[in-house]
């Protein structure tokens, strides 16, 4: 029966200045109720100051099979990382 309840993914911002982070999922009738249950289930210790809920079926996710075409091309650009650039002696930070 609870199959007829939707699955929702829950995201919580734990404090100001931080991103919302995925914390888990739950079942609810609609987004409104999902939000309330998210409050009851995932913030019992005051873990959050803001909650997002998203119906799981509304999430489009990349597939493992996309991995090669998605991420490998990003692997060969070491020049995008500061670590590539050596600092001369005497300069500790830049």
């Amino acid at each position: 029966m609870s199959d007829q309840l939707q699955l929702y993914e829950v995201f919580i911002r734990s404090s100001r200045g931080l991103d919302h982070k995925h914390v888990g999922s739950l079942h609810a009738d609609d987004p409104h109720q999902a939000l309330e249950y998210a409050r009851d289930v995932y913030t019992r210790r005051g873990e959050g100051i803001s909650i997002w809920v998203v119906a799981s079926r509304d999430i489009t996710a990349s597939q493992e099979s996309d991995c090669e075409s998605f991420y490998d091309p990003l692997d060969d650009k070491p020049y995008r990382h500061a670590a590539m650039y050596e600092l001369p002696e005497g300069v500790d930070s830049l």
Partner: peptide
């Protein structure tokens, strides 16, 4: 069960 059924029916109506 009747509660879960009621929720489903309510959502379907909406």
């Amino acid at each position: 069960a009747w509660v879960r059924e009621a929720m489903a029916a309510f959502e379907a109506k909406r």
